[in-house]
Design a protein around this nucleic acid. Sequence first.
DNA 1: ATAGGGTTAG
Length: 720
Amino acid sequence: MFLRLATEKRLPLLSPFAAGIFTRGFSSIDRINTNLRPFPDYSPKKPGVKDVDLVRDLTTALKQRRSEPARRVLSPFGQRFRSDHLLWAFPHLRSDLPLVLSLIHWCRSRRHPIPAEALAIAAHLSVDSKHLQAARQFLREGLSHPRFVEQVIYTYKYWCSNPSVFDLLFRASVDAGRLAEARSLFFHLLTYGVIISTDSCNALLSRIPLHELLTVFTEFPESGFRWNVVSYNILIHRLCQIGKLEEARGFLRKMEDKDCVLPDVITYSTLIDGCCKSGELQEALELFSEMSIKGLKPNSFTYTSLITLSCGNNNVVEAERLFMEMLSYGVAPDAVVYTSLINGFSKKGNLFAMSRLFDEMKSSGHLPDAVTYTVLICGLCGSGKMLEANKMFVEMISKGLSPDEVTYSALIAGYCREGRMGDAFRLHNEMLHKGLLPNVVTYTTLCDGLCKQGQVEAGNELLHEMCRKGLVLNVVTFNSLINGLCKAGNIDQAVKTMIDMEAAGLCPDTYTYTTLMDAYCKSGDMDQARLLLKEMLDKGLQPNVVTFNVLMNGFCVLGMLEDGKTLLQWMLDKNIRPNATTYNTLMKQYSIDKNMKATSEIYKGMLALGIIPDENTYNILITGHCKSRNMKEACYYYNEMVSKGFNLRKSSYNALIKLLFRKKKLQEASRLFEEMRAMKLVADREIYSIFIDANYNEKNIKTILELCDEVVENCYVEEK
DNA sequence: ATAGGGTTAG
């Protein structure tokens, strides 16, 4: 199996009838392959007379008393025994591997070094007895001796070994990380006609760096060796990992057309995943249909890649469709595909769908693992449900699952978002206590949390601690710190930090620029903001909707509404889809300027593009219309937003109540006032006065007292 | 030999 003579390459050189030679056995092959090296003859070192006697007595004792412990049997020989005796003992024990093993074991226990030659022979004997595990161990140990390979070759013929010993030797080199050695071993063995198995060569492929992999991939077949589908899958996977999709696809064609190796589900799934990771949905779908045409049935790996991409594109509807399609094709779902889908919903904040799928997963017999729980915890944290996230954390531990760095980082991020830095650091300490090392993400999360609490200095100190632990800052860490500095009003230091970041070999990205541009915009320095925009465009960085929103906000608060509208047009021209925030920013400024006509036009433009208004949009419309005393419009938007399940902000309630009161709509005003109080929102003092007066007129003492209490409790405390 | 989880900007 393991040995194939390296003759295939020479085939074309033979005469037409030479092919028949191959059926006639080795002697014929030897005739045509005169340049194949023969295996050398073995001539062991000669023992002295006393040595001969010792070895005979020792091996006889071992055989005679084989049921007794070797230690006891061999103890009389302890004084006189040398490592050399081992070599002379082997011929006596050649078909008795258990005794060979116990003799070697005894040697080791007496601290006798085992010579390389003995290790080579022991490997041959082990292979001969089909004891591959023992052979592997001897070979692994032997590799630490110089010229061990030569020892194995030198002893090979005499000990009538099996060619698989070379395969094991090659494999041991690979496993020991001696990759260059393995590579040259391949060619060296070739000169003896030994061919390493594809499996072992594939083990080499999966361990070497990509540039060497590509060399090996072309250089091994020069001797007639052929790669198989696994080899191609390894290569394609590595190319996909670094985003070289074109080349990966090239090898898909090459394997079929040039090498007659048929791609399998793994080949296609690997390529599809590569496309998904690069966001190339179109490519992925092409390959998906191509594999089906070839009769290859996609599996849960294939679907997971596509589902994960859909979720990442914020398209959970498509993700769920794919999941249903997978089920309808009879592809069994597993914990991974469930986890991916659950993650999609949790990221959208759809906790209902998240727990529905979690239940479905459990009831269909798929055990949630640590990743599943991490996704659930993350989803709950993202929705501010820290209590439930903690419950999930406890549940996962009670199920015997171990939270890892990722789980902890997710929980820590949840606490940071709530400003609960004490809890965040408590978890950080808990990690250390459990022997889990906080990594860059954990530290970045904590640093960001500190920055958001206004403690930039502490954040910076934490990063120094992180560096002392040998961790390296990444782009996100820098961005977080830059943001902290900006929010603390220290733009100069933020810019310096960006320069540090570049000096550290990290490229500022869209987050970095957007953060700094926002700081300049908010300080009223639109010129600097524009300069940064130019710089990022020059670097080939794409501004995104957030970048534009930052600029939009800058123009709007400075009253530069015409620039704002130009910016909106520019976005549309650049095919960057504005979102509700973009429109809200413009609408807000127009409504502050009491230009409700323009506000309404912007709103219409938003609807025309199919951009869904959010809670903010309605609040802007309501306060704006109230300020312009458009009661009808204000009430219209109030009803619409309530029907969509949105809540009014305090300012919207205040404005609407005041307007209703002014228009003598006492009943409506009062109803809204009650609604506002039920929402635990504190009305303006002016509104309290209005309702206290109104109740006074009605002589409703109880209500008056209640309202007075509330005013004292809320308005007074708030104004202090 | 292939798939799922955590951090940053408005």
